[in-house]
């Protein structure tokens, strides 16, 4: 049954936050998931190439910087695709020399999902966990590329909450 809200009498002040319940976080990690923003996770530096690059060009940039991913941008600096190490495996055919002739636009993943720098880490994790993405570009309100969040950067942010745990 739908509950009816009591109508205030004319002139009576009604606090719009009277029904607000402040979140009761179990720990600082849960609070960070909700209340921090993408700014808390490093999203720079990042690599980008333009649409005219070849697959081999992108691989050289990635290998030189030891990065797993490069963002492909258009002339307005808006992300149009992502090329990652996984795409290298998919692109390699019988002859590796052919990679210099394959345009990056043929091998990249088109129209990647993006996040804003004001999004929360939980939203980024939701996108990566549910969508199976390893990298998510960060864009501004105009859709221009600001940075890139990858698994390694998420891990660095996560591990800050488990600093007292010994590694293998």
């Amino acid at each position: 049954m739908k509950r009816r809200r009591r109508q205030p009498t004319p002139g009576e002040f009604v606090d719009p936050l009277s029904n607000y319940e402040a979140p009761d976080y179990a720990d600082d990690f849960e609070q960070a998931l909700c209340e921090e923003t993408v700014d808390a996770i490093d999203f720079k530096p990042f690599l980008k190439v333009d649409e005219s690059a070849s697959v081999l060009d992108a691989m050289k940039v990635m290998a030189a910087e030891n990065n797993a991913c490069v963002v492909v941008v258009d002339s307005d600096d808006k992300p149009v695709g992502i090329f990652s190490e996984r795409d290298v495996v998919q692109s390699v055919g019988d002859d590796a020399a052919e990679l210099a002739k394959v345009p990056i636009t043929d091998a990249m993943t088109r129209d990647p999902y993006t996040v804003y720098r004001t999004d929360s880490p939980a939203q980024v994790l939701n996108l990566m966990g549910s969508g199976g993405f390893r990298h998510v570009p960060v864009v501004n309100a105009d859709g221009k590329l600001l940075g890139l969040i990858g698994t390694r950067r998420i891990l660095r942010w996560l591990s800050g909450y488990f600093a007292d745990v010994a590694s293998a």
């Binding site: 976080y25 849960e30 939980a122 994790l125 390893r134 698994t151 998420i154």
Partner: peptide, 16 residues
């Protein structure tokens, strides 16, 4: 990482 992120999403608390 993929499996870890799936776990985190599955175990997100109500506030998230």
């Amino acid at each position: 990482c993929k499996n870890l992120f799936e776990y985190l999403v599955d175990h997100f608390p109500r506030h998230v």
